[in-house]
Every structure is written in C-alpha cells, then in structure tokens.
C-alpha cells in the first residue's frame, strides 16, 4: 500500500510541473531571449543526459563507444529513430558478446 502513496506523490509532482506552464502561460512569449532559450532547451537537455552517461550504459566501454559510433553514423545520414536506436543496441550486444568470447 505504501508504494501506491509514493507513486501518487511522484505522479502529482510530475503532472503539476508539466501542467502549470501549459495552462498559465497562454499568450505568445515576446521576449527574444526567452524564446531562443526555450528553443535550445531540448538539444541541450538530450545531449547532457546522453553524454557521458551512454558510455557507462553497457558492460564494456568499448561496446558503448561502438554503439554510439553506429548511432552517430546512421543519425548523420538521417535514418529514422528506430533504425538508429536498434543499430546502437545491436552493436552494443554484438561487441559485448565478442568481448566475452575473447575473454
């Protein structure tokens, strides 16, 4: 039962964070700095969450590096999200497996 209380608190806080800026700010933002800032937020946020954390997401650093390289290669050729994500995953699996074999 206690776990559901935790879950309720998590859900309430998260929803309010998402809801308040979406409901209270109803006019277009005129401030150019703020507009620019908000435009850059997703790129900054996604990259800060990815690097360097991705290099520690696999069992071997080399496997993670290979996965990132595969993802970067395909992403720069404008392949879709699924293709890129799957390639990263398969590469990590293959390289980890090869490294286990080699000891």
């Amino acid at each position: 039962m206690k776990i559901y209380v935790y879950i309720f608190v998590m859900a309430a806080v998260t929803y309010l964070i998402r809801l308040i800026p979406l409901t209270l700010i109803r006019r277009q933002i005129q401030n150019r700095f703020l507009k620019s800032f908000l435009y850059y937020v997703p790129y900054a946020c996604l990259m800060a969450m990815t690097f360097p954390a991705v290099f520690y997401a696999a069992d071997h650093l080399l496997a993670a590096v290979a996965g990132v390289a595969a993802a970067a290669f395909l992403a720069l050729r404008n392949k879709g999200l699924v293709t890129v994500a799957a390639a990263a995953s398969v590469t990590v699996f293959a390289v980890s497996w090869a490294m286990e074999l080699l000891g």
């Binding site: 799957a86 390639a87 995953s89």
Partner: peptide
C-alpha cells in the same frame, strides 16, 4: 542503450 540511440537520432 536504445534510449540514448533515440536521443542521438533526434539531435545529431
């Protein structure tokens, strides 16, 4: 690692 792959696919 898939999640990170998605992030890379979005930003790169």
């Amino acid at each position: 690692v898939m999640l990170y792959g998605m992030f890379i696919a979005i930003v790169f």
